[in-house]
Lab assay of single mutants.
Amino acid sequence: MALNTPQITPTKKITVRAIGEELPRGDYQRCPQCDMLFSLPEINSHQSAYCPRCQAKIRDGRDWSLTRLAAMAFTMLLLMPFAWGEPLLHIWLLGIRIDANVMQGIWQMTKQGDAITGSMVFFCVIGAPLILVTSIAYLWFGNRLGMNLRPVLLMLERLKEWVMLDIYLVGIGVASIKVQDYAHIQAGVGLFSFVALVILTTVTLSHLNVEELWERFYPQRPATRRDEKLRVCLGCHFTGYPDQRGRCPRCHIPLRLRRRHSLQKCWAALLASIVLLLPANLLPISIIYLNGGRQEDTILSGIMSLASSNIAVAGIVFIASILVPFTKVIVMFTLLLSIHFKCQQGLRTRILLLRMVTWIGRWSMLDLFVISLTMSLINRDQILAFTMGPAAFYFGAAVILTILAVEWLDSRLLWDAHESGNARFDD
């Protein structure tokens, strides 16, 4: 018995066209964080690309023209004298008006014999932002004059995390709450300039795509075929072959399989920071003279006294001054041990922890910024005066060393310790 099946006739004509040209192939790229070699397709503007294995951002879609970056830099340069030299806060102490600005706080630190601690604050609040705007201006002028731009481009990517104007702005709020127990506070004209400078700096850093600047100024022929001998440069993120001198053909720094002496430098910085954190938390970090009496505060006791007036601000200072430094030390110690013992479990967790400490590390400088600003506000000789204690130097040095330890660690070593050939990683 035959089955009668109805015929289905399409209502619209289906047209099949042959592909007349070869589909576009992607360029081969190595991930600078996990060293995976993959094919990167062509990316349009405002599109980002991520590593298929570790999800690290390979290409950032946010990109401004150099002219727009230069305009932002010149605007920031105009704001800087007002943000640093004009009063941020006014207080009335014992019937006398006192003005506080950024430069005055750094000068008070240096004047009291601790120039190293003052230079830490100076670099993060004044030096690094000033280098940022002058570097962008150098790129703008240098591109037109045919100057060598490689050193500036190499420095810009590392400079971003040292620009800490946003953290200093939080420190202004913390210092205001600490001082309000002794005097009446009012915002100064410099505060508005400083807030504007923070906003412009944040926007500029978020749109400063150094890798795209490398592509514009020093374009290189990408690798179009897969080759395990391809290496990625950690300076400019170019994937290719080393030249005859073993250097990256684009930025001219040595092109090595792994960062040289990464573990040794990381261990040295980490152990030194552990040693410095002990006096930083045991010795007094601030000293207040009130009517001839002397009151010393460690980091913890200062947080407890701050909690009596504002528990939320005390929580912020606790996280930045105690929780973050010790968390960074514990995480980095764990990561280094996992590399030495070739741990194969929990790779995803370790990668996330490394990215976390990379982002939060700079916030530990908050305590030094609060001390710097408070020193310029309260300084009335023996009637009422505020000065920093010996722990300030140890704390600042420990924070900087932990930042350097994270920067010096080559994250690809975590993958080397893991089993080879993993296309995915999980716990």
Rank of each mutant, 00 (worst) to 15 (best):
M1H: 00
P6H: 14
Q7P: 13
I8S: 14
P10F: 09
K12C: 14
T15L: 14
R17E: 11
A18L: 12
L23I: 09
L23T: 12
R25K: 09
P32H: 14
C34E: 00
P41N: 14
I43L: 10
N44V: 13
A49I: 08
R53V: 11
A56N: 15
A56D: 10
K57T: 12
R62T: 09
R68E: 06
R68T: 01
L69C: 15
F74Y: 05
F74R: 00
L79R: 00
A83Q: 04
W84H: 09
P87I: 10
W92A: 03
R97L: 03
I98T: 07
M103C: 08
Q104D: 14
G113M: 13
G113K: 15
A115I: 01
I116E: 14
C124R: 00
G127V: 03
A128T: 12
L132P: 02
V133Q: 03
I136Q: 09
L139D: 00
L139F: 01
W140K: 05
G142N: 01
R144D: 03
G146K: 08
M147D: 01
N148G: 05
P151M: 02
L153R: 00
M155E: 07
E157S: 13
V163R: 03
G171C: 09
Y182Q: 09
H184F: 14
A187N: 08
L197F: 07
L197Y: 12
V198K: 14
V198F: 15
I199D: 01
T202R: 15
S206R: 15
L208A: 15
E212C: 14
D227M: 11
E228T: 09
V232F: 08
C233M: 00
R245N: 04
G246S: 08
R247L: 11
C251T: 00
L255K: 08
R259M: 10
H261C: 03
K265W: 02
A269S: 08
L276E: 05
P279W: 05
L282V: 07
L283S: 05
I285H: 00
I287F: 08
I287L: 06
I288Q: 00
I288L: 05
E296G: 07
G302L: 02
S305H: 06
A314F: 08
V317N: 00
I319A: 07
A320G: 12
A320V: 11
P325K: 02
T327W: 12
L335T: 12
L336M: 10
H340I: 05
C343T: 09
Q344W: 14
G346F: 14
L368P: 03
D381K: 02
L384Y: 03
G389K: 01
A392V: 03
A392P: 10
A392E: 01
F395I: 06
G396Y: 04
G396S: 04
A397I: 05
L401W: 03
A405E: 04
A405C: 08
V406D: 00
E407M: 06
D410F: 00
S420L: 11
A423K: 07
